[in-house]
């Protein structure tokens, strides 16, 4: 990349030098449009983050789009139940690339306080890839802002070309994931193994 001190010198002269990647990522990260997708209590904290006290609009999340076709961030806020899971995957499939998912709250990360349940999906990352996780029940609005900034940092670091190219630019990454079907006892399949990589826990 361009040397920072050279950039600074040129800027003082009124010449702005940038690269395609920086410009592209800067535009994307400062105008992330979230999908208006609140499931349960965390949705209220999400709305409170978008309200006047902890303003999400100053980070670019100005409009919450109701339609997935116009959004590029899905904040899964609230408990994901097994009945709702196919609809979430369908919504994710309908979002255009590049798209990101923030898993907000304990319930969306791993089932949360309702983990021992027959209708609770133990984490939305069983079916769709998640970029940022926010723990908390519910997480404070500052935590959501922090996650938003983490996501912005992540977008900033995505490269457009080369070996470490961003995932959505590679040819063979899927942008749609299979929708689980309702089975007799559980969702079928119970998890999408291409996406769900729980860390192996070594125990005695």
């Amino acid at each position: 990349m361009i040397d920072e001190s050279l950039k600074g010198e040129l800027q003082k002269q009124g010449i702005w030098v940038t690269s395609m990647q920086e410009l592209y990522n800067w535009g994307r990260k400062n105008s992330i449009w979230p999908l208006q997708f609140g499931l349960a209590c965390c949705a209220i904290e999400m709305i409170a983050t978008a309200a006047s006290r902890y303003d999400l609009a100053r980070f670019g999340g100005e409009v919450f789009r109701p339609s997935p076709r116009q959004a590029d961030l899905m904040i899964v806020a609230g408990t994901v139940t097994k009945k709702m899971a196919p609809q979430i995957v369908r919504l994710y499939n309908q979002m255009p690339d590049p798209k990101y998912v923030i898993s907000m709250g304990a319930c969306a990360i791993s089932g949360g306080p309702f983990k021992q349940g027959y209708n609770v999906l133990k984490g939305i990352d069983r079916y769709i890839p998640v970029d940022v996780y926010i723990p908390g029940c519910p997480p404070r609005p500052e935590a959501l802002l922090h996650a938003f900034m983490e996501l912005q940092r992540k977008i900033d670091g995505q490269k457009l070309s080369g070996a470490s190219q961003a995932e959505f630019l590679k040819e063979n990454t899927p942008s749609e994931y299979p929708v689980p079907a309702f089975g007799a006892h559980d969702l079928e399949p119970p998890a999408n193994l291409d996406v769900f990589h729980p860390p192996a826990i070594e125990r005695a």
Binding site: K83, Q116, G117, Y118, N119, F182, G183, A184, H185, P190
Partner: peptide, 17 residues
């Protein structure tokens, strides 16, 4: 629960998946 569900979850002998 969804219509294709066959168990009755609140019974004491229900075993979850």
């Amino acid at each position: 629960m969804w219509d294709e569900f066959t168990d009755f979850p609140m019974r004491k002998d229900y075993r979850e998946p």
